[in-house]
């Protein structure tokens, strides 16, 4: 265990994730406030952030619990919301292939929007899967720890923050910091534009299904553009 914690890649991953973690603090505060509003005690709030470990799922689950929705509906809704994790899992799978199953199972738990984006960037550059896995572990643990602290802080003192500060706007800003650097090739831009239009146009769909539908549409358009670009390339 100790040799993992002192490895350079682990520490790099941990430290490089901290700026993104700062941005997630407001998101965690909002989740903690939501858990308190749903009638959870501090242990229940901690259980949500530690076990579910997904801001979007926690917020929706808390809101639906507060509204008295049946368990089955809550579970189904958050599952649909979490379907993007399937795509992250598929995208990162080839890079985790050289690792032992124990590592695959452990790293899978830490897979989230931010960790995925940082991890995939690191896997792209290096041909050292074990270094990248340590980097992934470091960034995942950093995010997990900060997430617990932020949600706990939100649970206890989140209601003291003035709403005029619009701190919840930091949540989309975190995602913008991840996605904007990807807009350097035409298929990625087309994928984003398609998904963006679709998510708004389909916003009437129940259970936030518009998120999944828009994601799939964007991926299809991006892939088609990629295939067409290859065909037109002068050879």
């Amino acid at each position: 265990m100790r040799h993992i914690l002192v490895a350079k890649d682990f520490r790099d991953g941990f430290v490089e994730m901290l700026p993104a973690c700062v941005g997630l603090v407001p998101f965690g505060l909002v989740c903690g406030v939501g858990a308190a509003a749903a009638g959870a005690n501090w242990l229940g709030s901690l259980g949500m952030s530690a076990i579910i470990f997904s801001g979007a799922a926690q917020i929706v689950a808390a809101q639906m619990l507060a509204a008295g929705a049946p368990i089955a509906v809550i579970v189904l809704t958050t599952f649909v919301l979490g379907l993007r994790l399937l795509m992250y899992s598929a995208a990162i799978a080839p890079y985790l292939k050289p690792l032992p199953p124990r590592w695959q199972n452990g790293l899978a738990f830490l897979l989230s929007d931010q960790v995925f984006a940082a991890g995939i960037r690191r896997f792209h550059v290096g041909d050292d899967p074990h270094g990248a896995a340590l980097h992934f572990l470091g960034s995942g643990i950093a995010l997990w720890l900060v997430w617990q602290l932020a949600c706990m802080a939100g649970f206890f003192v989140g209601n003291l923050i003035p709403s005029a500060w619009s701190l919840e706007f930091a949540v989309p800003l975190c995602f913008i910091a991840l996605v904007a650097p990807l807009f350097r090739d035409v298929p990625s831009v087309l994928a984003a534009i398609t998904a963006g239009i679709a998510v708004l146009a389909l916003s009437h769909l129940p259970m936030k299904l518009n998120l999944m539908a828009a994601g799939v549409l964007g991926i299809v358009i991006g892939t088609l553009a990629d295939l067409l670009r290859e065909r037109w390339k002068p050879r």
Binding site: E168, L200, G218
Partner: peptide, 24 residues
């Protein structure tokens, strides 16, 4: 992984993150 799937997965972050951001 099938090559077409591998190609499609390259566009997961751009599409999925944009879909998450815009409604917020």
């Amino acid at each position: 992984m099938p090559p077409l799937l591998a190609r499609a997965l390259r566009y997961v972050p751009a599409a999925m993150l944009t879909a998450l951001i815009l409604p917020m």
